[in-house]
Design a protein around this nucleic acid. Structure first.
Lengths: 361, 361
DNA sequence: CCCACTTATGCTCACAATGAGCATTAAAGG
DNA sequence: CCTTTAATGCTCATTGTGAGCATAAGTGGG
């Protein structure tokens, strides 16, 4: 009776069967901005012209980079919108469309690209024209290039739009006022159960009241703030609502729901950086361990333990020394490394342990 | 000097920073069926009418269930296609569209739904009409219902389409011939490096030559077989190619690229089941540990270690006993459990440990 | 009633992975 | 030479996970 010999990364494992309980915000049944979203209402009692309907497809890209320890996003209109454009007939595929569109619009070559999410909610666009639009969001990782900055095109820190997300120096100052406002929102709920529920939700999302901060829940936090009416974009939609004078600052707004798409992208990247070697797409060819770590820290919005980070890099053999030494460190010189591209082809996928169960159990 | 107190699930962790090296096949820059995909060629030298183009949106659903220890998919046309239909103007959102379309088509209520992927490759459809189509794939989890089976509508085992994916009784018989054919394909490459590369790729994907089988790489394996010309759908596309008489059986074909979409869904579900409590969507309200385990095994196509699986359930407190006892076990009676829905709201997300770094490092 | 057989449950044990933090090395700047 | 700042090495306690032994509690036959 040999037993399973579990290399499956599974229950026999269990390492992998640690269920997260959290929605990733990109897949589950949420059509708008969460329950209270004004956009989720409306419709459903309108024309009901149940026929195929020609529509336009739009591509929206979140182009991310890291410079000077800051995660940045490529924007148009002086930071008010993400690069986007129509899906054209000349494009072989959606992916090709994003690439050509963004590169034409920004003169910026894209690196790694992945699809984020597709949506076509009826009330998405403010000026709903005659045609319905289906939007496909993409996340692209690159190096920030400084050359020919077109007018209006620029790189802005993520944290300009989500100031509560940067916990590298500990909880950011904005967090206090935000939690205060959320508590107010909870208090305004009708009924004790409603108040309790709102309180539970915001504490959970923001790690308040002794709960832990989960850096991955970017979208959830944004949606909660939106629901609580603390996001400028939400106030735009309900014209009656004025920004309360006591409302805390909740970051710069963007056109339409671009900021929500950015939140989706950050969520995705913060999750992905943990199980795929994507950081390297954001770094120059060679780097020191510290630079690598700081890139991860910038994205995650957290400080990391230096020695353990190093140990991890060593164990996984993701990088190899170039032989070069960086002397401008402020301390002992550091070795420079390069990403071992071969790992993309090699055997063991670090996290999810491999396969196969043999014999009877 | 307090230190980081790393609960971040991060590098200080490293638990989470074990990069996978693998593409998930749903996000990366692959527009067709991998490098050799005939669909990835074509186009790019055609009309180039670079303007906004009205197109039709189509929704395609992979509706999954588990019955009698088999993972099943809801199909139309006697197993030849997935439920699909146009995105209509009456639909509030894409998600709502899938729901109503599938339910109308199959009289089957859907449970959990998540978006899979959106594609609009030019050469996707065989009969490319005048209009371009953008397709949005969805994955839905439900319980199989037996009532009023419309003609042509039915549930088929996944493994009918991917017979090499079921490793619950050890490597399936088809695997041998398939590996043989892949070796032949590798041998037919021109040049030693080409042959070596093909060999490396198929061994990696299929866990041949001492390598481990990774149950998550469903899409990669399918694409490799497609590229090797071993998939019926691929042969349809290049009319010259006849199925070789020595070709191994590679499962039932489906219309268009529906089988590829199914592969994407299986890949996603096999991955997701490890870090989110989604299995419960596939189970009745109460169940025994064994039933739960068998559902996971059906999806993963692997056998699991019973005691450790149990330990996991206990540790994570995902289920609670109902008090009921199942006696028809063939052995000692088993307790029945129910999923603790509260866990969806509760604190700790099992896998990705929580956050926050305080103090200086 | 005892026995063989089957599945359910408990529990142990060794080993690998991970969180924290001490210690040492190697530059730069007075 | 001494202080400060990083880079690197390495230790140590804890927890997580792979395997498997052992016992419990039914069923179906002698």
């Amino acid at each position: 009776m040999p037993g399973v010999d579990c290399q499956s990364g599974f229950p026999c494992s269990g390492r992998m069967l640690t269920w997260n309980h959290e929605s990733d915000g990109t897949g589950t049944d949420r059509s708008g901005h969460g329950r209270g979203d004004p956009r989720a209402v409306g419709g459903m009692n309108q024309e009901m012209a149940s026929t195929t309907m020609p529509l336009d497809a739009e591509l929206i890209a979140v182009v991310a980079a890291v410079t000077a320890r800051m995660p940045r996003v490529l924007t148009l209109e002086t930071g008010n919108s993400l690069p986007s454009g129509p899906f054209e007939s000349a494009h072989r595929s959606l992916q090709a469309g994003v690439r050509s569109w963004v590169e034409r619009q920004t003169h910026h070559p894209l690196g790694h690209i992945e699809q984020l999410y597709t949506f076509a909610d009826r009330d998405r666009l403010e000026s709903s024209g005659p045609r319905r639009v289906i939007s496909v969001g993409y996340l692209a990782l690159t190096l920030e290039s400084r050359r020919d900055p077109e007018p209006g095109v620029g790189w802005w820190s993520w944290y300009r739009y989500f100031p509560w997300e940067d916990h590298r120096q500990g909880p950011p100052p904005v967090l206090g006022p935000i939690l205060g406002a959320l508590e107010g929102w909870a208090t305004r709920a009708s009924g004790a159960p409603g108040r309790r529920e709102r309180r539970r939700r915001y504490r959970h999302a923001f790690g308040a009241g002794g709960l832990a901060w989960n850096e991955e829940w970017v979208l959830q936090r944004y949606e909660l703030l939106y629901e609580a009416g603390l996001i400028a974009e939400a106030q735009r939609r309900s014209p009656g609502a004025e920004p309360g004078r006591d409302d805390p600052p909740t970051g710069e707004a963007m056109v339409q729901d671009h900021r929500r798409i950015l939140a989706t992208a950050i969520t995705r990247l913060r999750a992905k950086i943990k199980y795929r070697p994507v950081v390297f797409e954001l770094l120059p060819a060679t780097f020191t361990y510290l630079e690598l770590q700081q890139a991860v820290e910038a994205i995650a919005g957290l400080r990391l333990h230096k020695q353990n980070f190093r140990r991890l890099m060593v164990q996984q053999k993701l990088v190899e020394p170039t032989g070069a030494i960086e002397v401008r460190t402020g301390g002992r010189p550091a070795r420079r490394y390069r990403f071992r591209r071969e790992v993309l082809l090699e055997q063991a996928p670090g996290g999810a342990r491999l396969p196969q169960a043999r014999g009877r159990i």
